[in-house]
Write a protein that binds this DNA or RNA. Structure first.
Lengths: 127, 127
DNA sequence: TGAACATATGAGTAATCGTTCAACTGTTGT
DNA sequence: ACAACAGTTGAACGATTACTCATATGTTCA
């Protein structure tokens, strides 16, 4: 899905506005990164892991798995992803691995999203 | 993926901490909703649509498609999703449909996520 | 009425994602 | 050295996702 000048076959209604707005859009690269960050938060298992770390601080994989109701394998896979994107960090001690949140943005993203879903009166509309 | 009491076969290292944390985790339903909201923002096409609306205000589907480099069909599908979750809203006038952001949380989520990716020094680590 | 148009939508398809299973690494205690 | 353990990892499979194509709906203008 390249952002080509003429990717849309239809004629723009307000061509000036379109090209003006396009100059201010985030770069392709930035958009990709953003999408990846949000994608990390788009899974219930990972979300529960983050909520658990938010609440309980540093915890080992086994406890995280137990607290979030996942298998250890699933938790480990999930943590690996979060770690790769620097959302969580590990401290290793013997055979244990202790995970914790890497930065505070997560809590804010969390709270903002919660206030958003609090906004709506019910579930999603089916349009 | 039920949040069963014993979903994790491994013995918890700190059972007290685990069960204490679990009482404060968001409900299953809340987690699902959160994941859906973040999932909405996890796609480059939708992200570009939102960035465009953030920058350009109310715009018709055709211009949105042109500005974001998608086919009109793709844009329409994406807007439908965003609309179902009350992230954008439509105003119809004749055969045109003018879309705009439904609330301001989007901008904040955007900015927060951007500062997060600004944090890292490069792309994701491959662990 | 009929053609051009703006948008919406259903079906189909290719790609991505999350889980499980099984195997593997490295550590601890006997 | 051996077994139990905490965690990691790769492959495989089922589910979900986002696109394209074709078609449908409703609007405007001649």
């Amino acid at each position: 899905m390249p952002l080509d000048q003429d990717a849309c076959q239809a004629q723009a209604v307000d061509a000036g506005r379109v090209s003006s707005v396009r100059r201010f859009l985030p770069s392709d690269e930035a958009v990709q990164d953003l999408a990846q960050v949000f994608g990390l938060l788009a899974d219930p298992g990972r979300l529960r892991l983050l909520a658990t770390l938010l609440e309980g601080g540093e915890m080992c994989v086994c406890d995280l798995a137990a607290a979030t109701g996942q298998s250890m394998s699933a938790a480990s896979h999930a943590l690996r992803l979060l770690r790769a994107h620097r959302v969580v960090k590990v401290r290793r001690s013997g055979r244990m691995a202790y995970y914790s949140l890497a930065d505070s943005h997560v809590r804010m993203l969390f709270d903002l999203a919660i206030t958003h879903i609090g906004h709506g009166e019910g579930g999603p509309d089916d349009v």
